[in-house]
């Protein structure tokens, strides 16, 4: 039977704005998380926005000349220049008295944490009024899944093939931004659009540099089936592998608290890129999660409810020392 509240009325509930500034017909793969990152972001920013986009999946997703998927102007720019291009656009607008336009640098993780990092660092250090957003699919996906500085430890990519899986942990770009004394930086996840939209809205109101990083699943790159695109990133946050927090003028705050222990293996086991991991190696990844979480709790000034896990996994990992990961001896 049809629920009575649905009969004949416009009763579909929504928790995010309905207005769409991205068209269907775009060129992303089935189940692409990066498309949702863009859609949610524009729902918050609105049409008074200009994008600077370097080489990345999104420069393809948008469509070939003379077509576009976005209802806002987008400048295609060179791979390393998302931030400098955005700084220039913003300076141009400011001179013409149009400083109220949201200028956004929108880049992939490779374009952000590797090749674009010096332009971004300069932009933040100068204090330019730009919102920099990195959609993080944890590898160079557009060119066929090469590892980036944002690829997590242990992951398979085409440049970290068996048995040489990624040896170093993911670069902590938010911490690097905090070290720049940035007014506002935060993490996001496409599985939590309400949280993300709040952060984009907050960033929009702040004059000065802002850095946001949103985790976005990539079925061909992470090697999972397209229908679990949301489930997989949701698990990244519920396992605390990708915590949701913000840092405003140096003050850390969790925007989503986790109370229940969900092992990181729940996130890893859904993806082909982690299929080869042994139990011992997963313990190392769990330890990295615990260390990062403990560090964040200390910075946010709250008690770490998982302190026993940190202790337990430190003991456990000490015992087996996997060769592919460097562990400090004490």
């Amino acid at each position: 039977m049809r629920p009575s509240h649905l009969v004949g009325g416009k009763t579909m509930k929504t928790t995010i704005p309905k207005e769409e500034l991205v068209y269907s017909g775009h060129l992303a793969c089935q189940g692409c998380g990066a498309t949702l990152a863009m859609r949610y972001t524009l729902k918050a920013l609105g049409q008074n926005t200009v994008y600077s986009v370097p080489a990345c999946c999104w420069s393809v997703i948008d469509g070939p000349f003379p077509y576009t998927s976005l209802q806002i102007p987008l400048f295609h720019t060179a791979f390393e220049t998302a931030a400098s291009m955005a700084s220039g656009i913003q300076a141009g607008f400011a001179i013409r008295g149009k400083g109220d336009i949201n200028v956004v640098a929108w880049a992939g993780d490779g374009g952000t944490v590797d090749i674009g990092i010096q332009a971004l660092s300069g932009m933040v250090e100068r204090g330019d009024n730009v919102l920099y957003i990195c959609y993080d699919n944890e590898a160079y996906m557009n060119t066929g899944i090469q590892r980036s500085g944002s690829t997590p430890v242990g992951a398979w990519t085409t440049t970290t093939p068996p048995p040489h899986f990624k040896k170093s942990p993911k670069k902590d770009m938010v911490a690097i931004m905090v070290a720049h004394h940035i007014p506002y930086t935060a993490t996001g996840n496409i599985a939590y659009p309400e949280d993300w939209i709040k952060k984009v809205n907050k960033a929009k109101e702040i004059v000065g540099p802002k850095y946001l990083q949103i985790l976005a699943s990539c079925p061909p790159g992470w090697k999972h089936s397209s229908e679990i695109s949301i489930e997989v990133v949701r698990l990244a946050t519920s396992t605390r592998k990708w915590p949701l927090y913000e840092v405003e003028n140096g003050n850390y705050k969790f925007t989503r608290m986790t109370r229940k222990f969900v092992p990181v293996s729940e996130f890893l086991k859904l993806q082909g890129r982690f299929r080869h991991l042994t139990e011992e190696e997963i313990d190392v990844i769990q330890l990295l999660v615990e260390e990062h979480w403990a560090d964040l709790c200390a910075k946010a000034g709250i008690e770490n409810q998982f302190a026993d896990k940190l202790e337990g996994y430190t003991e456990k990992v000490k015992k087996h020392h996997p060769q592919w990961f460097h562990i400090e001896e004490d």
Partner: peptide, 20 residues
């Protein structure tokens, strides 16, 4: 049940929820 989760997470923005 009218929750619109399908609309919220469709990566191709091709679900219409103007009706019931």
């Amino acid at each position: 049940n009218g929750c619109s989760l399908c609309w919220k997470f469709c990566p191709d923005f091709c679900i219409n929820i103007d009706g019931d």
